[in-house]
């Protein structure tokens, strides 16, 4: 983090960041993990995304500055794929400002950890489950397939695309001072508020979705009451065996036994 917190902005004037370049980078960022691998992780994807901005370097695409910058940006890198937009913007700016290579490399290395952990906490652990639960709630409220799909996809992608667009914008404008963007309230407090919203949504969604999936009959019949009793009991068992057995494996075993019993009895 030291490179992130002690950096000072370069004294050069802001280079042009045309709408065309921004759009090209944004579209490419959708494929930032297109070549994710165990050798350089998303390094090649970073180079691929930043490349349109590098074309403005002296000498253009055939120039030495372009090739050196592309080589630097295609080396090992890892971050959350959406929040990598901050790194893409900041590193593109640093390259266009012709910041010394050693400093760019140190800065690039320092970005990996924070962008990974903040993104995982905000998106994978909070936003995605929350949107999933909204989808399940819509299903439980007897939403049509189209309503469930649109509700989930529009909500999720509003957050997803906002993060990528904001990240690129903030990264480019803050350059090497991008660490301050990590203090954005959404990144800092978002997981807490989204988590609380998800808890409310989960509590409403589970019984409603279960009821619809059961066929929507009398909720006080023997089968729904049985489900209402058995589900929390099984959940407690799963919480207790956590770390030793993943839930999907337990479900697989239960359902295979159910199939065998039903077809052989």
């Amino acid at each position: 983090m030291s490179e992130l917190s002690t950096s000072t902005p370069p004294a050069l004037a802001t280079p042009a960041f045309t709408r065309g370049t921004r759009l090209r980078i944004l579209v490419r960022m959708l494929a930032i993990q297109g070549s994710w691998n165990y050798e350089i992780l998303m390094g090649n994807g970073m180079g691929f995304c930043i490349e349109p901005a590098l074309r403005t370097l002296p000498g253009g695409r055939e120039g030495t500055a372009y090739r050196e910058a592309l080589a630097r940006q295609s080396a090992y890198f890892n971050a959350h794929p959406y929040l990598a937009a901050l790194a893409v913007g900041a590193l593109a700016r640093a390259e266009c400002d012709q910041v010394p290579p050693s400093r760019i490399e140190r800065f690039r290395t320092a970005l990996c950890g924070p962008l990974g952990s903040v993104g995982d906490r905000l998106v994978w652990a909070a936003w995605l489950p929350a949107c999933s639960l909204v989808g399940l709630l819509l299903f439980g409220l007897h939403g049509t397939p189209q309503a469930v799909l649109l509700g989930f996809l529009l909500l999720y992608n509003a957050g997803h695309l906002w993060l990528r667009i904001w990240g690129l914008h903030a990264g480019w404008h803050q350059g090497l001072r991008v660490a301050s963007a990590l203090g954005h309230p959404v990144l800092q407090h978002g997981p807490r508020y989204i988590g609380r919203g998800a808890a409310v949504c989960a509590g409403l969604a589970l019984p409603l979705a279960v009821h619809r999936a059961l066929g929507g009959g009398d909720p006080l019949g023997a089968v729904p009451i049985g489900v209402a009793v058995a589900t929390p009991l099984l959940a407690v068992v799963l919480v207790r065996v956590r770390g030793r057995a993943e839930g999907w494996r337990v479900v697989l075993l239960m359902l295979v036994l159910c199939v065998l019993y039903s077809v052989t009895r």
Partner: peptide
């Protein structure tokens, strides 16, 4: 089926 999957989600 639903008890099994709902329990996984709840846990």
């Amino acid at each position: 089926t639903i008890t099994a999957v709902a329990a996984v989600a709840a846990a």
